[in-house]
């Protein structure tokens, strides 16, 4: 049950080598110089090192990303909170809603037994798209700081 053995395993994408939780000391970060040299390579490098060395600018950038992702997650959970979490309350204060019958099935059964699942999946799908867009924005910001 240790993740330590897989460090340096072949076939791992050239991503940030995630230090193993078991490593005795935090392994030094390796900066991989990219093959493609973009026009603003030196600037991108500088931003990148601001990130890794935790300068004020770097930290502000990360804080911005974390805040954007958290705001997105909270907004979508609010949606679920109202959409699903409001149902018991609605059924409790307005019992007549529970008696409405659609196609011979009572509405609460349809909402909870069937409709809840596509709703959850749709929210999840939206989150994955939007979270990836946030990350793309962040990547663009770091790689082309002049924009």
């Amino acid at each position: 049950m240790t993740g330590a053995d897989e460090r340096g395993a072949p076939g791992r994408p050239a991503a940030a080598p995630v230090p193993s939780p078991r490593a005795a000391e935090p392994s030094p970060r390796t900066r991989i110089v990219l093959a493609e040299v973009s026009r603003s390579a030196s600037r991108a490098d500088r931003t990148r090192s601001e990130l890794t060395q935790q300068t004020r600018v770097g930290e502000a950038l990360v804080r911005g990303l974390v805040r954007a992702q958290l705001a997105l997650a909270l907004r979508l959970s609010l949606l679920v909170l109202i959409g699903l979490g409001g149902l018991p309350w609605l059924f409790a204060i307005a019992p007549s809603v529970g008696r409405v019958s659609v196609l011979g099935v009572n509405l609460p059964w349809l909402l909870l037994g069937v409709a809840a699942f596509p709703f959850l999946i749709a929210v999840g799908w939206a989150y994955v798209r939007l979270a990836e867009r946030n990350e793309q924005d962040f990547t663009d910001l770091v790689q082309r700081p002049e924009r």
Binding site: P13, A14, A15, A16, R29, R31, I32, L34, R48, L51, T52, V62, L65, V66, Q69, E135, Q136, F138, T139, V142, Q143
Partner: peptide, 8 residues
């Protein structure tokens, strides 16, 4: 939180 695409 940093995306892998950055290759930090």
């Amino acid at each position: 939180h940093a995306p892998e695409a950055l290759r930090l």
